[in-house]
């Protein structure tokens, strides 16, 4: 048994480090309450332990032990449910909610991170098991961490579209950002306030895939939510006029965001919108089909 001490220990160490590293990198996706950190670190530790005992278990011909991996998968699906439920509950108190799609995306990321931890731990312990070089196995662990970080990065709005400042103006009671209609604002007082403090940006999709993605309401809600999270909002429960709204130009497919931020800074808003993650659930690729390519030209 002692011969596996180092193998399992290194696996657990690298796996837990991986989880800690991934907790650090998700500042926008999760508020990071201390309790949340404890929960995810413990689950990460368990995932690491499961990953690192898999190979020694096989080496000892304890094949039944491997079925624990199935148990782990079940456990981590539970993580997704837990994240989804708690974020959805918190969403009700938000002035500008994240929206179901964004929450689903975040929950999925949290589940998937545990699998990455398991794979990292498995790789680390495997290398140590076969080579008996602790240093090499640690390096493998770091390499896996780097690769998974790179692979899991996901796209942001800035990758699929051009974001530029837009001009807010009124056509009668109708608020517009450039040529895109946003909403009808009745009160003259509110119109003045909006012109004084509001900001607008226009998002031009780079191709048909991006256009379809930006049409998704969940994706648009995510854009409004991130803009508010970064720049704040002047909206309160009795001023629905200041709700950030994302509307599209139905002819071209470009998207306009209107918001009344607490910090009026157009460069900040453009930068925030460019960094909004493209939601996995909103991703569309009509250009991958033949019919889509025919329609595109």
């Amino acid at each position: 048994m002692e011969q596996y001490g180092m193998t399992i220990g290194l696996g657990i160490l690298m796996g837990t480090l991986a989880r800690a590293y991934m907790l650090r990198s998700d500042y926008r996706q999760y508020p990071g309450y201390p309790h949340g950190y404890v929960t995810h670190m413990s689950l990460g530790f368990i995932a690491a332990a499961l990953g690192s005992v898999a190979l020694p278990a096989i080496a000892e011909k304890e094949f039944a032990a491997v079925t624990f991996l199935a148990l782990a998968a079940q456990q981590f699906r539970e993580v997704r449910n837990m994240e989804r439920e708690s974020l959805a509950a918190l969403d009700e108190a938000e002035l500008v909610p994240r929206g179901k799609d964004y929450i689903e995306g975040i929950a999925r990321v949290f589940e998937q991170r545990n699998y990455l931890v398991m794979v990292t731990a498995l790789a680390t312990s495997a290398v140590h098991h076969f080579t008996r070089w602790p240093l090499l196995s640690l390096l493998t662990g770091f390499a896996f961490l780097g690769v998974s970080e790179y692979l899991m990065k996901g796209k942001v709005i800035g990758d699929i579209a051009e974001v530029e400042a837009g001009q807010l103006h009124f056509a009668g009671p109708l608020l517009m950002v450039n040529e895109i209609e946003i909403m009808n604002v009745g009160l003259p007082k509110m119109r003045e306030k909006i012109l004084r403090d509001g900001l607008g940006v226009v998002i031009h999709p780079k191709n048909d895939n991006a256009r379809a993605t930006l049409s998704n309401m969940g994706q648009r809600q995510a854009i409004a939510n991130v803009a508010t999270a970064v720049l704040g909002t002047k909206k309160d429960v009795d001023t629905p006029e200041f709700t950030p709204i994302v509307r599209k130009n139905i002819d071209v497919g470009s998207i306009a965001l209107f918001c009344v931020p607490a910090e009026k800074d157009i460069d900040g808003l453009v930068a925030a919108v460019e960094r909004v993650p493209v939601l996995e659930s909103a991703r569309r690729a009509p250009l991958k089909t033949k019919a889509g390519r025919i329609a595109a030209d």
């Binding site: 604002v185 009795d238 629905p240 006029e241």
Partner: peptide, 9 residues
């Protein structure tokens, strides 16, 4: 304001 609603023209 009282009804937390919005005015449209």
């Amino acid at each position: 304001q009282v009804m937390k609603a919005m005015v449209h023209d």
